[in-house]
Amino acid sequence: MSVAENIEHGHGHAAELSPFQQHHFATAQQQNEASKIGMWLFLVTEVLLFGGLFVGYGLSHAKFPEAWKSAHHHLQRELGALNTVVLLVSSFTMVMAVQAAKLNRRKQLIGNLWVTIICACIFLVVKYFEYSHKYHEGLLPFKAFYSYQGPQVPGEFHFFSFYFMMTGLHGFHILGGIAVLLWVLKRSYAGDFTSAYYTPVDLIGLYWHLVDLIWIYLFPLLYLIS
């Protein structure tokens, strides 16, 4: 952080001349700080949005412990573990991308963004295989769709309701993240980001870490119950 501050101060004049500074901010730094506050608040709302599902998960799990234990064996924990590693790698490259933007290293920024996006896509592909496997077995969410015929404990569809709702909502966040990352990538090619202005890279970084963090909680809660 101290490195970044030094650079910001060093380029004080460049900061004032940034073409991306909006008219109602006095300085680029003020704009960056306001944007960061906005992003952190948005992340708080995301935590609370998922919070509702986590509470529902906890209560339902407490109500049907046997069904949840038996149902979670249908998940492939190797694939879950693989996805955890993939997301952790993408978080690392995201940090590297932010750092590269701060240090004016455009090529490094572009490269790291690409790796992050590719990891996100790998995550979704793995998720696709997991989902289609469940689909073929009839292990679907909700009373209306659940049609698994094999041996089971009553109430297993509760587990799959929460499995699909939680990973589904998370998956939508990954998709949204990819869309924004592509936009940031496009602007990086255009050379918009310098040490004087890299707010969008910073913000998508914050978002991406939260999406990873949520998965870090989802993985043990869903795949590692027993």
């Binding site: 529902g56 209560l59 339902s60 109500k63 049907f64 969410p141 909700f142 009373k143 209306a144 769709f145 109430g155 569809f157 509760h158 309701s161 929460f162 709702m165």
Partner: peptide
Amino acid sequence: LERAFGIGIFDPRIG
């Protein structure tokens, strides 16, 4: 979702 498909979170008929 509960209304449309039945999650089993609020509706007592399905737990």
